[in-house]
Design a protein around this nucleic acid. Structure first.
Lengths: 153, 153
DNA sequence: TGGGATTATATGGGCGTCAATGGGTATATA
DNA sequence: TATATACCCATTGACGCCCATATAATCCCA
């Protein structure tokens, strides 16, 4: 599977390390398995992460915004300048920078949520609440969620 | 046959393994026969499953949404983080994650119901009751059922 | 066509490997 | 030198891989 899926709840040890879920590590290209990028989500108090290869895709998406709009600058600044790269050690662990941890309210444990081509890291309780809220919003439009899941191509 | 059909009642062993019905395994493409995806059904206390190919289609659909919209996050979260992938071993068995088992009320045995392009896993009694209920609902509108079954394309 | 043989399927269990986690020590950086 | 981080080794429990068996289905040949 080459997508980030499912959710995982892991601990941060005394040294500040946390395991990147094994299934997430396998999504990263064998070449760059020891490096990921992290940045603050622009839509929620969470951290988003992905392989370095995805940077190009992010750039493309931002480029598709109207260059002269205020959004362009805002997104561009908020995302690019906030990106940090982190090394994954041989055991599959990495360090979450303090600034990102406090942005997400993370202390001693964190939850990983697969999001397809990237993943999010949340303070566990907030992360769970967020999934519930998302689902509640979508269920109001039952048809669309169902379509998304069952529609045939 | 390339559709999930019929129903099967199997046991979960001490290690938590359960056989994926042989006919279901044959529906999966020979390439990805050893991996399936599972997720909570939206409308019933059951688990739905299918091959990983379907997940890729879903990913494509979500990718087409506006990346910076709130809908994007809602779909992405509700789908990717709720989906789990599971490996099917050489004997055709796999593990149902605890969270999904408890969502469906499954303990030591489970029932598989073919649903065409996907399948459902139920706690046996509830699954049977559900089929009865569905059928009863359909029969109330006998006319439309008869039409459905006899109409030629 | 009948009946024995072969194959497939559902299920059980042993065992090695891997994943998540902890910690000691070396190396680097400020 | 002090603090942080990379590398190495260790532990525990879960999971994958392998082998085994019994029953059911299929095949094959006389």
């Amino acid at each position: 599977m080459d997508l980030f899926v499912s959710k995982y709840f892991y601990k941060i040890d005394k040294k500040g390390r946390i395991s990147l879920p094994s299934s997430f590590r396998n999504v990263l290209p064998k070449a760059n398995r020891n490096e990921i990028i992290l940045y603050k989500s622009i839509k929620s108090p969470s951290i988003e992460g992905c392989g370095v290869g995805r940077l190009k895709e992010i750039a493309k998406r931002i480029n598709n915004l109207d260059f002269f709009s205020e959004d362009y600058d805002d997104f561009s600044t908020s995302i690019f300048s906030e990106i940090v790269t982190t090394n994954v050690d041989k055991e599959g662990r990495f360090l979450i920078p303090e600034e990102l941890k406090s942005y997400a309210g993370i202390k001693t444990e964190a939850a990983f949520f697969g999001q397809g081509h990237f993943f999010q890291i949340w303070e566990p309780k907030q992360g769970l609440k967020n999934t519930e809220d998302s689902r509640r919003r979508l269920l109001k439009e039952k048809k669309s969620l169902r379509m998304m899941l069952t529609q045939q191509k």
